[in-house]
Design a binder for these strands. Structure first.
Length: 917
DNA sequence: ACTGATACTTAGCAGTGAAAAC
DNA sequence: GTTTTCACTGCTAAGTATCAGT
């Protein structure tokens, strides 16, 4: 009875909370978008927000009886609290260095020194890598073998291409060198690292520039070589799967003072990409494509110029009639279809080629393992081919949002049922052994196995967990267990550790066995049949129950994520093909909606979000979308010059919202910021461009020798900190001052802008353009740019790998892809340092020996003593080298510790770029 | 214009297996 | 053979974008 009552109360409470939340967001948005009485509105809104926040805080405090950070507050005190909290959190969960990066100087000096050393070391590094030439040769041989077949076919195209390429290349080269310094500076400074790092970069740059001087000369000569080796491949590869290569042909030249972007588009390169591998006549393709492009861009050109004039006027967003836009749309789609059809032909071999490419990418990375991977890959490939090669690009594409015609699958796999703990694993409360009911125990194990995790040290996590845990308890248990601190999960924790240990120590056969079992499950449930073709499903396993691990300061972290039952799951498939639900259960719903790509969905209980079972990234649906993404980036490349011009004009627009939009667009374009949708209050407080608040930026007329510096400091997606000091155009700076005028730190910087408005605007400039395209575009551009800059055709393979990784890193820095410092980092660093120290010692000893030996020579000048000197000399040299190597390793690791390369590799870097390069 | 719902992409973390180092 | 390192992958949270209903 008690429980019933509790529950009703609970529900009512929730209801009220929800209502509360609704009204809150109403306020928020009303203040955001109605600007007639903006001042008053804002004040009122602020008051309300404050009040809401305070209320909530009070509630929370009561609940928790403890300090808690306030969410987004406009009061300085609150803010500083939050900052403190944030710092605290970060110190724990992320690198200490990161924060100190920006603020502590001693550490930085140290780093400075390290980096200087590193610069020197890099040269050495290269030398060393050259020694690995053997590997390179082996690699070459293999590549040759692979290439030989294709080469014959390409040879024809190549010749034609080459002459064209040369001209282009020459032009490009000129521009490149002209702009490189400026660009370099800009790109680097936009890479959101602190000023100290920038200084280092300057040095680095100086060094690089010097190198480049040399490079230029070298490069000019072996141009033919470029064409002959990597370029050939580039053209060929790119031809059949054109995505990015072109991006690097947009030369963004940025005038340092005014930060004016300019583009010099080189259409021909696009054309080149369209060129299919063999058969098709090159020139013919060139012609057609060019025509297509003019057709394609024409309709966009007209409204753009019109728009430009409108821009300076007033009502602009609504000025372009929907019907007019639709017309454009249809025209564009027709042209693109033509284009696509052409491409489809080209991509005929895409599957194969793609595989090949992947292989190659690996090959460059891992020379030694290449052989094995190739073998396995080939196997995989063969299997796949046996299964099917779906030439989806040859099929007619439905335009009306239909994603499939038939869809069959076996339904998702549910998490295995809970295995109760063995009797000897006990839970203690207040020192006493308590036998928990199964459900309670299950939730206890969720927590118990996380005992070593940072999460369990967080107040929010613990309160949320405990609250939810108590909900699953029986009333008796609830009465007894009232304090989490008195709970002892240590045996549970030890049990799971033991289990994973045992798991690791299994014999090979056992591991093989489980692997085979897993494989079986994948074979059965991991595939679906879509339009008659078998395709891999991405996440066919439904998320198991556990504790919600929100990132950053997520208010819901620690809540219990319920076990999903078939009754929660909606199945989407062709009519009459629904898989049967697990025995004794039934689906929540079976539907047949072919306008969506998901196979099953359920609503998760913590955030109320819908989760989907979708296809694997390699499936055609995903592949096509991915391809479209890069296509959009390519399209943007053509438009970006105009867009830049336009938003630069808009800096001085009369209307505030136009100005805000222009500045926001500038940030998105230049810094690759995310769009910044609005968020609910029950999520971690993070922002993107449009949701930036006044507190997230600071302005300095001059800072570190740069004028008009904007300093960004905010938490972005996944609560990753974004810190960047960047010099902007004067107009942008002045505008920002205006935007910030009369606002509280907690107020929106762009109070008349949101992502919808921005995207609507972008979509008018170019069909399908959204804020995130800029990120893709920027990342691709940077990769190409960096590769161009860093690579030298004469480089050894190892050097090239280094260059590639550096380019990759540049992209990761641009996109602010960070990671927590690996847990083992400190330890492995320590090990390395110990090694370095040991090496130093032996070196010192060897040097001493050398001295002694020299003395000996002076004294006796005997043959033997001379030989001894030589020997000592050699040891010293060798040791020095070794030491240097270790030190380089250390600095490199240090530099890389908080940059996540994987994400950019996965989502922004096209395999073709790597291959082409 | 606002809102909530929906669908899909992007992201970091953790676990794992294999290679490298010892 | 053992330990350490590293890259890969699966998982799932957290974004972006759009749409329909009001």
């Amino acid at each position: 009875m008690g429980t019933m009552e509790n529950e009703t109360i609970e529900i009512r409470k929730e209801h009220e909370e929800k209502k509360d939340g609704d009204s809150r967001s109403e306020h928020k948005s009303s203040s955001k978008h109605k600007h007639k009485d903006k001042e008053r509105d804002r004040d009122r809104d602020r008051e309300r927000k404050d009040k809401d926040r305070k209320d909530r805080d009070r509630e929370r405090d009561k609940d928790r009886g403890d300090k808690e950070k306030s969410h987004s507050s406009s009061k300085d005190k609150d803010r500083s609290d939050r900052d403190k909290d944030r710092d605290k959190h970060r110190d724990k969960s992320r690198s200490d260095e990161k924060m100190t990066n920006g603020h502590s100087s001693s550490k930085d000096k140290e780093k400075d020194r390290e980096r200087k050393d590193r610069d020197k070391d890099r040269e050495k590094d290269r030398e060393r890598e050259r020694e690995k030439g053997k590997d390179k040769e082996r690699e070459k041989d293999r590549d040759k073998e692979r290439e030989r077949d294709r080469d014959k076919e390409r040879e024809k195209d190549r010749d034609k291409e080459r002459s064209k390429d040369k001209d282009k290349e020459r032009e490009r080269e000129k521009d490149r060198h002209k702009d490189r310094d400026r660009k370099d500076k800009d790109r680097h400074s936009s890479s959101h690292k602190d000023k100290h790092r920038d200084k280092d970069r300057d040095k680095d740059r100086e060094r690089k520039d010097k190198e480049k001087e040399g490079d230029k000369e070298r490069r000019e000569k072996p141009k033919d070589k470029i064409k002959d080796e990597p370029k050939v491949e580039e053209t060929a590869e790119i031809a059949e799967f054109p995505k990015h290569e072109e991006t690097h042909n947009v030369r963004i030249t940025e005038d340092e003072d005014t930060s004016v972007f300019k583009t010099e588009t080189e259409e021909i390169v696009d054309v080149k990409q369209e060129v299919p591998e063999a058969e098709v006549d090159v020139t013919a393709t060139v012609e057609t494509v060019k025509m297509e492009e003019t057709i394609e861009s024409d309709p966009e050109d007209v409204p753009l110029s019109k728009r430009k004039s409108i821009t300076n006027g007033t009502d602009y967003d609504s000025d372009v009639p929907l019907s007019a836009r639709k017309k454009i749309k249809s025209e564009v789609t027709t042209t693109t279809t033509v284009k696509k059809q052409k491409k489809r032909k080209i991509e005929d071999d895409e599957d194969e080629e793609y595989e090949e490419k992947k292989k190659k990418k690996k090959a460059t990375k891992k020379v030694k393992t290449e052989e094995t991977t190739t073998v396995t890959k080939k196997k995989v490939k063969k299997e796949e081919e046996n299964v099917e090669t779906w030439k989806w690009w040859e099929e007619k594409k439905e335009d009306d949002g239909v994603k499939w015609r038939t869809l069959e699958h076996k339904g998702p796999v549910f998490a295995p049922p809970y295995e109760p703990l063995p009797k000897n694993v006990k839970f203690y409360y207040n020192g006493k052994h308590i036998e928990l009911t199964q459900d309670t125990e299950e939730v206890a194990t969720f927590y118990g196995r996380m005992l070593d995790h940072d999460y369990t040290a967080k107040e929010q996590f613990n309160t949320n967990f405990f609250k939810d845990w108590r909900k699953t308890m029986t009333s008796a248990e609830r009465e007894l267990i009232t304090d989490l601190k008195k709970c002892d999960f240590s045996e549970i924790n030890a049990y799971f550790k033991r289990r994973s240990e045992e798991n690791k120590n299994r014999t090979k056969e056992e591991k093989q066995k489980t692997k085979a079992e897993n494989e079986k499950v994948i074979q059965e449930f991991g595939f679906c049949t879509i339009d008659g073709h078998k395709q891999r499903i991405g996440n066919f396993k439904i998320e198991p129950p556990g504790l919600f691990r929100g990132r950053g300061d997520h208010p819901k972290m620690g809540m219990v994520k319920r076990r999903v039952m078939p009754e929660d799951v909606i199945i989407n498939c062709s009519k009459g093909t629904a898989p049967s639900a697990p025995a004794g259960h039934k689906w929540k719903e079976v539907r047949s909606d072919n306008t969506v790509t998901w196979l099953a969905s359920w609503t998760e209980n913590v955030q109320g979000q819908v989760k989907y079972v979708m296809l694997n990234a390699a499936s055609h649906l995903k592949g096509e979308r991915d391809w479209n993404k890069y296509e959009m980036a390519r399209k943007l490349k053509k438009m970006v010059g105009k867009i830049r011009e336009q938003y630069q004009m808009d800096y001085k627009a009369k209307e505030m919202r136009v100005r805000q939009r222009a500045v926001a667009l500038y940030f998105i374009d230049k810094l690759a910021l995310r769009a910044g949708n609005e968020k609910d209050e029950d999520q971690a407080d993070t922002v993107g461009c449009c949701s930036l608040r006044v507190e997230h930026i600071s302005l300095d007329e001059t800072k570190n020798g740069k004028d008009f510096v904007v300093t960004f400091d905010f938490l972005g997606k996944d609560s990753i900190r974004y810190y960047n000091e960047i010099s902007v155009e004067k107009r942008v700076f002045k505008n920002l001052q205006i935007f910030m005028d009369n606002k509280q730190p907690g107020d929106d910087l762009f109070d008349r802008l949101n992502t919808t408005i921005l995207n609507k605007h972008l979509n008018e400039i170019m069909e399908g353009l959204t804020a995130k395209v800029f990120r893709t575009y920027n990342a691709s551009f940077t990769l190409q740019d960096q590769l161009d800059k860093l690579t030298n055709p004469d480089d050894s393979l190892a050097e090239k790998i280094l260059a590639y990784n550096r380019a990759n890193r540049a992209v990761a820095i641009l996109c602010n892809h960070q990671r927590a410092v690996p847990k083992t980092f400190a330890k492995s660093m320590e090990n390395l340092q110990a090694k370095i120290d040991a090496k130093k010692e032996t070196l010192a000893e060897a040097e001493k020996n050398l001295k002694d030996a020299k003395k000996e020579v002076k004294r006796s000048a005997s043959q033997a003593s001379k030989a001894a000197v030589e020997k000592c000399q050699k040891t010293v040299e060798r040791l020095r080298e070794q030491l240097q190597k270790l030190e380089v390793q250390a600095t490199d690791r240090e530099e890389n510790k908080e940059i996540a390369l994987g994400t950019s590799k996965l989502n922004y870097l096209d395999p073709r770029i790597s291959v082409a390069w």
